[in-house]
Amino acid sequence: MNPNDMSADDVGANDMSADEPPLLSARGLTKYYGARAGCLDVDLDVYPGEVLAIVGESGSGKSTLLALLATELAPSAGTVGYRMAGDALTDLATLPEADRRRLLRTEWGFVRQNAEQGLRMAVSAGGNVGERLMAIGWRNYGAIRAEAGDWLGRVEIADDRIDDDPRGFSGGMRQRLQIARNLVTRPRLVFMDEPTGGLDVSVQARLLDLIRSLVADLGAAVIIVTHDLAVARLLSHRIMVMRHGRVIETGLTDQVLDDPREPYTQLLVASVLAA
């Protein structure tokens, strides 16, 4: 199917019942780099199974916000809360480091634009995917390998590549490997920062399609940063528009993109349509 024909509403997994509490919740999130603002006073809720896109021009603070949400950066002000499986909202700033790391490698995933940062380049594809399994205590080689092979299949990497390391992989394959590596523990929340950036258009389309079906299958919530509104339209249920570190407009993706209220969003949408 052509991914451009569909919008995210067609994907069945998005079951946002109104009474379900948010999975991740940020309030007043602010980050200064010295005197320069990276991101200012952001409130945000992400619900289970929801795909939220963060869009905006270069330097608007998207990556900063994502890093704050994923606890990779410490905020200058504000809080991030996360609901552990079957638990109440926990302020992530109070989480012990060991628990935070366990979260990162079990319930969360992080797919980066630059695959070299998200993969171990000298480790085989199977080892890259198996790492999280070993980190959570899998100790049976055959089982780890079978699970890794299964996930390589899901991201359309041929099984005879399982022992090759990603240095010999194309850009698209590396991103698919990164996705498998992150999804193998069936995370509840996946952060993605420009996961299709720098790839050919045709490779991008295929990757987006894959991401969409995999996260739908898993029912994972996704926060995806992109400057590409077409990516946001294809993948996300909700969208947040950032400018100068602030969120200036937020809403259902189709509503915001078809009928933007803020003049800046109108410009953004218009410039993309013109492009």
């Binding site: 171990r120 480790v123 080892g127 790492e131 070993m134 100790r139």
Partner: peptide
């Protein structure tokens, strides 16, 4: 986990 990656 990394140690077992090496053995893997």
């Amino acid at each position: 986990g990394l140690m077992h990656v090496k053995l893997y």
